[in-house]
């Protein structure tokens, strides 16, 4: 199949969806390689729970496969945007069922037995420190910040995913980033940055 790899690489996600619906055996593999990391990354950072994130990522991909039969290649949303929206909604549902908005509420922070922001930083684990800081944000802010600054999506794309106006997205990402900065400020040494 190595001869086919360049062919798949040149195809858009939408074109691969159509191929998948028509029974192409390689389209699913390529779509999985492209999209599953993004779904898993988004869910992991929003939920803060790897096992739940894997469940949600698998469920979202299953819905994507089912949507392939009716997929319009020139439709309003690219498969990735559509997938992010499903992941965002599944995460929201999961957090609401567990009664969580921020993964770490202000009132629980003092009694939280997990390593907090400062402890993670002292351990020199920058990614874990970022995750701990993200966990402090309200759910919608967290989703917006993750989609904008980690997944690298544009504000209009995020607006479509979160079913918000573009200005609302800009406000969420700005507030979320300020909150992250506040949580991480003063810890530059632990993060390995020069003062």
């Amino acid at each position: 199949m190595s001869g086919d790899a360049p062919t798949y690489a040149a195809l858009s996600d939408g074109a691969l969806m159509v191929l998948f619906a028509n029974g192409d055996p390689g389209a699913a593999r390529v779509l999985t390689e492209r999209l599953l990391p993004r779904a898993l990354g988004h869910a992991t950072r929003v939920l803060g729970d790897r096992a739940e994130a894997e469940d949600i990522a698998q469920e979202a991909m299953l819905r994507l496969w089912r949507a392939a039969a009716d997929w319009a290649q020139d439709g309003p949303a690219a498969p990735a945007t559509w997938l992010y929206r499903v992941v965002a909604n599944l995460c929201t549902d999961r957090l609401r069922k567990s009664g969580q908005s921020a993964l770490t509420d202000e009132a629980d922070r003092h009694s939280d037995t997990r390593p907090g922001v400062e402890a993670q930083m002292i351990a020199g684990d920058r990614m874990a420190a970022l995750d701990a800081a993200l966990a402090l944000l309200p759910e919608r802010q967290r989703q917006a910040v993750v989609l904008r600054h980690i997944e690298g999506l544009s504000n209009p794309e995020i607006a479509m995913i979160l079913d918000l106006g573009v200005e609302a997205v800009e406000s969420l990402t700005a507030r979320g980033k300020r909150a992250l900065s506040a949580a991480l400020s003063g810890k530059k040494e632990a993060l390995g940055y020069d003062s």
Binding site: T32, G41, W65, I150, E151
Partner: peptide, 21 residues
């Protein structure tokens, strides 16, 4: 630096591909 930092386990990929099939 957080972009692309999530590693997808083989078991998850396999489940997703099984669903696709």
């Amino acid at each position: 630096s957080a972009r692309g930092a999530v590693r997808v386990p083989e078991t998850l990929s396999a489940r997703v591909l099984a669903d696709a099939a």
